[in-house]
C-alpha cells in the first residue's frame, strides 16, 4: 500500500511567478483522483512539480511518499520510489528504440531496488512482459523498433506512455491528459489498461478535460482545479456536472489568467 501526501503545495516558475497556490491532496493505492480544470490553470505544473521538473520551484509545502519527502530527490529517485508521470506532451529521443528504452528504464528501477547493483531483467522475461503488455494495450509491434516518440502520432505517444506505466509498475501514477489525442477505441483500451492497474499496488491521479475517460477509469474523487487551487471537490457525479455546465460556477472573478 502506497500513500502520497501533498501538503499545502506551492509551485512557482523560475522567475518567481506562483502557478500552484496551495494544494492538499492524499492519494492511496486503489484510489483514482480526477483533476479537472480550465486551460492554463496549472494542472501540468502540479504534475511536473510532483515529478521534480527542474524548471519549477517548490515555493511552499511538501510532498510525501509513504512518509518520506520527495522534495530533496531528483526525478530519477522519485521514479525509483514508485512515482510515474504520463506526460501530456512526451518528448522524442531520436536513435533510441522504444524497446531498448523500455528495457533500460526497467533495468534502472531494478537496479535501484537491488540497492545499486545491476540486476538486468533476463531477455526472455522482458520479451514476455512486453508482449503481454502490448497485447493488452493493443500497441502495434512495429512501434517497438521505432525511435522513442520520434515522429509518433499524438495517439501513439499516449499509448507508449501507458505501456511504460504498465511495465514500470509504479505505486502512484499521474496521468496528464492521457486521453487527449486518443481516438474513441484507443481511449477505451488505454483507460481499461489503466483501470486494471489501479488496485492494491497502484493509485492514480488522472488529469483530464473530459468526462469520457472517467466512464472507464471510475474516479473515487473529482477535484476542480482553477487559478492554482482546488475550488471544488466531489465524486464522479461532479465530473458529469462539469461536462454539462462548464467551470463558470467555480471560477472566482478574474480566473483564469489572474497570474
Amino acid at each position: 500500500m502506497a500513500l502520497l501526501e501533498i501538503k499545502d503545495l506551492h509551485v512557482a516558475l523560475n522567475d518567481g511567478t506562483e502557478i500552484v497556490k496551495g494544494i492538499d491532496l492524499t492519494v492511496r493505492s486503489g484510489e483514482v483522483h480526477a483533476i479537472m480544470g480550465p486551460n492554463a490553470s496549472g494542472k501540468s505544473t502540479l504534475a511536473y512539480a510532483l515529478m521534480g521538473h527542474p524548471s519549477y520551484k517548490i515555493s511552499g509545502g511538501d510532498v510525501l511518499l509513504d512518509g518520506e519527502s520527495l522534495l530533496p530527490l531528483g526525478a530519477d529517485e522519485r521514479a525509483q520510489r514508485g512515482l510515474f508521470l504520463a506526460f501530456q506532451y512526451p518528448y522524442a529521443v531520436p536513435g533510441v528504440t522504444v524497446s531498448s528504452f523500455l528495457r533500460s528504464a526497467m533495468n534502472a528501477l531494478r537496479k535501484a531496488r537491488a540497492d545499486g547493483t545491476d540486476d538486468p531483467i533476463p531477455i526472455p522475461e522482458f520479451r514476455k512482459d512486453l508482449a503481454a503488455a502490448m497485447e493488452h494495450l493493443k500497441v502495434p509491434r512495429e512501434l517497438l523498433g521505432r525511435y522513442l516518440n520520434d515522429g509518433f502520432s499524438g495517439g501513439e505517444k499516449k499509448r507508449i506512455e501507458i505501456l511504460q506505466m504498465a511495465l514500470l509498475r509504479p505505486q502512484i501514477a499521474v496521468l496528464d491528459e492521457t486521453d487527449s489525442g486518443l481516438d474513441i477505441d484507443a481511449l477505451k483500451t488505454v483507460a481499461d489498461g489503466v483501470s486494471d492497474l489501479v488496485g492494491p499496488e497502484m493509485g492514480a491521479i488522472v488529469i483530464t478535460h473530459y468526462q469520457r475517460i472517467l466512464n472507464y477509469i471510475h474516479p473515487d474523487f473529482v477535484h476542480v482545479f482553477a487559478g492554482g487551487r482546488f475550488v471544488a471537490e466531489g465524486d464522479a457525479e461532479l465530473a458529469k456536472k462539469l461536462e454539462s455546465e462548464g467551470y463558470d460556477a467555480y471560477l472566482p472573478e478574474g480566473i483564469p489568467g489572474d497570474g
Binding site: A75, P94, V96, F101, S104, A108
Partner: peptide
Amino acid sequence: FYLMSRGLSESEASSMIVSGFVE
C-alpha cells in the same frame, strides 16, 4: 527530465541521448 522520470540517472539518461545521437 523525461528519461530521468523513468528512473534513469542523469548520466544514464545523457548517455542514452548520446547513444541515440550516434545510432
